[in-house]
């Protein structure tokens, strides 16, 4: 099984994408499955590090939290642009956060989360020291941002990947 389908998640999502791009029929199901299997084989030749998802429950909780945060921060940033940054009182700043997260897929996911929520921009991550440099659009309280990222995202990501 694992020799035939080395990357089941990748193959499954490729098949899903194939069916989304065409219309659902038996022919497309077979063709898409073939392509997904071949692509999985090709991926195995590249030998990327395989992420291990440990807890699926935390994945769904993370998705819920992140989608809520995206809506909220969208509204917050849109409002800040509309009223001119609380009429000039908004302060943006850089923020350095020491992370304990080391696994590459988890860091990639954190980058997607931080960029998808308007108001935080990922700038730099140092792989040796684990210090993450982000830019915060509306810096009210430094401690609160650090707590938000470490407790809300990093803890969940640690649960999922490590």
């Amino acid at each position: 099984m694992s020799r035939l389908v080395p990357y089941p998640l990748l193959s499954l999502s490729l098949l899903l994408m194939w069916l989304l791009l065409t219309r659902f029929s038996l022919g497309h199901l077979i063709l898409g499955s073939g392509i997904a299997l071949i692509a999985g084989k090709a991926m195995a030749a590249l030998q990327p590090a395989q992420p291990q998802i440990r807890r699926w429950g935390s994945v769904f909780r993370l998705v819920g939290i992140v989608s809520l945060d995206i809506v909220r921060s969208n509204a917050a940033v849109a409002l800040l642009i509309l009223n001119g940054g609380r009429h000039g009182a908004r302060r943006s700043d850089f923020l350095q956060i020491p992370l304990t997260l080391r696994s590459q897929p988890a860091l990639a996911l954190l980058a997607i989360i931080l960029t998808a929520t308007p108001g935080t921009a990922w700038l730099e991550h140092d792989a040796e020291t684990g210090v993450l440099l982000i830019h915060v659009f509306d810096m009210v309280d430094e401690e609160e941002w650090i707590r938000l990222i470490r407790d809300r995202y990093e803890a969940l990501l640690l649960e999922i990947f490590e």
Partner: peptide, 26 residues
């Protein structure tokens, strides 16, 4: 539209980096 308004209006580059994410998220 608000994202690009921010792109025009904001002062520093690092502030402007946040503006287009409005367009690419919601």
């Amino acid at each position: 539209l608000l994202g690009t308004v921010g792109l025009v209006q904001l002062r520093s580059f690092y502030d402007r980096l946040h503006a287009p994410t409005l367009g690419t998220s919601w």
